[in-house]
Design a protein around this nucleic acid. Structure first.
Length: 669
RNA sequence: GCCAACGUAGCACAGCUGGUAGUGCGUCGGAUUUGUAAUCCGACGGUCGGGGGUUCGAGUCCCUCCGUUGGCUCCA
């Protein structure tokens, strides 16, 4: 029998008989309870049952590793499909991949509801317990098509992804099998700890015009304990949801009667927003920005020039038409669609709620003759824009119809792009750092080389893309290039963060734009005396105040650092005897610019603490006899820790410096 | 926009197979004047998201619109 050499991760080389399986090697090296689900053979993921015939390197894939979890989840998706088929024989499985937090499987079947998940899950456990062997079977083309003859979706996949005559593999567990490349766990017993989490719908191949499928989501973990922990984490995450906290902490309100996706900033939330705006404001001055203000509407002509109307009509609020004109048209029996056509053709005019601030800023640039000495010209505005987002997409503060961008447009020469892009993303980084937001990714959006939708000279694109890439690289954080993610008018750099339920949101963005300067025929006079075209950079470090605050609420779980806390000190009195001292303390704090709330009503101190805790103030200031006599305060932190009898003046000095330094969390206790 | 589930007092929730709405917190009033996660008593407060229908009778069944949630699609 032939012998082969197998190299282990630590460099050891073992000799085995050819034909040995991965499982046997790993068991030999790591023992029976090795916790591995599959193996990495010369860099390729293989099933445990994979037979090795040549010398190679091998490494076990542990269940806890990313690769291991992926296999576990993918296998669980198969198990789900098997269970669904057992209960709904007419269901047609389509695809069922592993995803970040678990897995899903899409079925063509009658719609089911959440309550139907229980029996399915039960069936899954039943099958898992049977400990069926998961077997890889290679089939030729004919066999493959025969196996899936009853399932047009699988046939479509075979048609598209697998060339004629090459055949492919299926994975079989018991009588059930699925088209799949694998690898998978060895047996269904590895999939005991699953939980189906939700049911929803999806379009076949993500195409709105094709069949709507039933999608079932689930999670799976290698152990019971891990599953319990994951479920617990999910529960905890829900408590941090900004929509819940926004209500509990009275930060914002969304009112049906005002409209979907239109945020009402209540006093406490408005403070957070204002503090953030002030924070950016300081940096704007430092970086040489000029503040501007522009109105919320503009003539349709403006957007015809910019190209936003009528091209983006579907994602805009309908235009506003002048009263007299509207009456005249209505008297003439003009229908809505005729009106719309007249607007599109430019025969009649109207106004539009601005869907972005750029055109207004462009007009400020164009209001004067510019020379190269004026550049870069940096115009900044907290500009509120309105977009008609699809009703199903609107969510809390993160996806809304009216929002305020911390916007700015930089008009620069070609040569200034790199430096200015860098300045922009540095600002984003300063902000993220200050707020302790470290869990973000940077995405450099480049053009799709195969597409023709991009405007502008490819050479200029190359240069701008390089500037973005270089800027991203200089950040010292992970970043990725993504082709096809550029806007049609230029490359961009996005800062993307996840919310508590794992959804990604684009916050800060920096975009290079060759298009608008062209469309508005912007120029500047160069040192050569000739007119040149400036380049625009769009930039919003927060993205929008709404989305950013939404994400920030979750980031801090409602426990804002002192400088951002809507109320920084909640003064609680022990009894009504202390009302006078409390108001003295409150006034002193207010004189120092500290935001104070006073509770000098009746009720026990325990009750007051309980009540005020829910608002997560930076500090609770407890005042009783001792404090009144000694002119001191006692503090209680969010953690429950407390310190007594701090001289009032010391407290003020400390908290003021804490606020001025924008310390990350209260630290005086 | 599409699919599904859901929508009961300010908030969190209960109301089984249809018979004219309950609990807790909050609020208000009274008593209490209290040292660090809920002092006691009482009162007010919903017509059950809007509209329509079935029925002798609907929060409870049906239709429709609005909204919310989870996804899908979309995001200049």
């Amino acid at each position: 029998m032939a012998l082969i050499n197998i190299t282990l991760p630590d460099g050891t080389v073992n000799e085995y008989a050819a034909g040995i399986t991965c499982s046997e090697v790993i068991t030999d090296v790591l023992g029976r309870k090795n916790g591995c689900l599959a193996a990495l053979v010369d860099g390729h993921e293989r099933d445990m049952s994979y037979e090795i015939h040549d010398s190679c390197q091998i490494e076990g894939i542990k269940a806890e590793s990313d690769a291991g979890m992926h296999i576990l989840r993918h296998s669980a998706a198969h198990l789900l499909a098997q269970a669904v088929m057992a209960i709904y024989p007419d269901a047609k499985p389509t695809i069922g991949p592993a995803i970040d937090r678990g897995f899903y499987y899409d079925f063509a079947m009658e719609t089911i509801t959440e309550s139907d998940l229980k029996p399915i899950q039960k069936k899954m456990q039943e099958i898992a317990r049977k400990n069926l062997t998961v077997e890889r079977v290679e089939l030729d083309d004919g066999e493959l098509r025969e196996h899936f003859a009853a399932n047009p979706y699988k046939i479509e996949i075979i048609d598209d992804k697998i060339g004629e005559g090459t055949g492919s593999t299926i994975y079989k567990q018991g009588e059930w099998y699925d088209l799949c490349l694998g690898p998978h766990v060895q047996n269904t017993a590895k999939l005991m700890f699953c939980k189906l989490t939700s049911v929803s719908s999806a379009y076949w191949r993500g195409d709105q015009d094709r069949e709507q499928l039933v999608r079932i989501y689930g999670i799976v973990e290698p152990t019971k304990e891990a599953l319990k922990q994951t479920l617990h984490r999910m529960e905890e995450a829900k408590k941090r949801d900004h929509r819940k906290l926004g209500k509990d902490l009275q930060l914002f309100h969304i009112d049906e009667e005002v409209g979907q996706g239109l945020i009402l900033w209540t006093p406490r939330g408005a403070i957070v927003r204002q503090e953030l705006q002030n924070f950016i404001g300081e940096h704007l001055t430092r970086q040489g920005y000029s503040q501007v203000f522009t109105p919320h509407i503009g003539k349709l002509d403006l957007y015809r020039t910019s190209g936003h109307f009528p091209y983006y009509q579907d994602s805009q609020y309908p235009p506003l038409v002048e009263k007299d004109l509207m009456k005249k048209l209505s008297d003439e029996g003009c229908s809505c669609s005729e009106l719309s056509n007249l607007m599109k053709s430019g025969e009649i005019d109207g106004y539009m709620l601005k869907p972005m601030n750029c055109p207004h800023h462009v007009k400020i640039y164009a209001s004067q003759a510019r020379s190269y000495r004026d550049l870069p010209l940096r115009l900044a505005e907290f500009g509120t824009v309105y977009r008609w987002e699809q009703s199903g997409e609107i969510s809390g503060m993160t996806r809304v119809r009216g929002f305020t961008q911390d916007d700015a447009h930089l008009f620069v020469t070609e040569d200034q792009i790199a430096e200015e892009v860098l300045g922009c993303i540095e600002l984003v980084q300063i902000i993220f750092d200050k707020l302790g937001m470290t869990d973000y990714r940077v995405r450099v959006g480049l053009r799709d080389p195969d597409s023709t939708k991009y405007v502008g000279d490819p050479k200029r694109w190359d240069k701008a893309e390089k500037a973005c890439r270089d800027a991203a690289a200089s950040l010292g954080v992970d970043w990725s290039e993504e082709e096809g993610e550029a806007a049609f008018y230029g490359p961009k750099i996005d800062f993307v963060v996840k919310d508590v339920i794992g959804r990604e949101w684009q916050l800060g963005t920096v975009q290079v734009d060759y298009n608008l300067p062209e469309r508005f025929d912007l120029t500047y006079k160069g040192s050569d005396g000739e007119l040149h075209r400036p380049v625009m950079i769009h930039r919003a470090p927060f993205g929008s105040m709404e989305r950013f605050c939404g994400v920030l609420i979750e980031h801090f779980a409602g426990r804002f650092p002192t400088w951002l806390s809507p109320t920084q000190c909640h003064i609680l009195t022990i009894s009504e005897k202390h009302t006078e001292y409390a108001s003295k303390v409150a006034n002193k704090l207010k004189e120092n610019g500290i935001r104070v709330e006073i509770d000098d009503g009746d009720g026990t101190i325990g009750k007051k603490i309980r009540t005020h805790r829910k608002l997560h103030p930076a500090y609770m200031v407890i005042l009783g006899d001792g404090e009144a006599e000694g002119n001191t305060v006692s503090l209680r932190a969010r953690s429950g820790e407390q310190v007594s009898d701090i001289p009032l003046d010391d407290f003020i000095t400390n908290i003021v410096s804490e606020i001025n330094n924008k310390s990350s969390q209260p630290n005086l206790v």
